[in-house]
């Protein structure tokens, strides 16, 4: 198909405090249904969305973090995390609940540059 576009969803907000992280996930799943070339980027507090061990019983909110592991089933396999954002939060790749590609800030900039459509959350 020639009309496939490269979509990048940029996640910069932590989960639960606002609705952004969950809404981004909803839109990602919708766009995957349209057979587009979808990538997800996580930087700044967005990297917290992928933290292992989230337990939301105490705040009576749906724990949507397992959904990131299900993205593979929708052919959404390109997840990118900025190295500098992880480091500023005392996190490493081992703290994340899904396989990702860790990029430098410069590489993240290049990734954004290559897209047809960038949606920011």
């Amino acid at each position: 198909m020639s009309d496939i576009k490269k979509f990048l969803f940029v996640n910069r907000k932590p989960p639960y405090g606002t609705i952004y992280a969950l809404e981004a996930l909803e839109v990602v799943l919708i766009s995957a249904a349209f057979d587009q070339d979808v990538s997800l980027a996580f930087l700044d507090d967005g990297v917290y969305q992928l933290k292992k061990g989230q337990q939301t019983k105490g705040i009576e909110t749906k724990n949507f973090s397992p959904t990131y592991r299900a993205l593979e089933g929708y052919d959404v396999e390109k997840l990118y995390v900025e190295k500098e954002s992880l480091a500023a939060r005392g996190l490493t790749e081992d703290d994340l609940l899904v396989d990702v590609t860790v990029l430098s800030s410069e590489e993240m900039g290049n990734l954004m540059d290559q897209q047809d459509v960038v949606l920011s959350f």
Binding site: P15, K51, G53, Q54, Q55
Partner: peptide, 8 residues
């Protein structure tokens, strides 16, 4: 509960 929700 907010710390637990965030896995920290």
């Amino acid at each position: 509960p907010d710390l637990e929700a965030r896995g920290l």
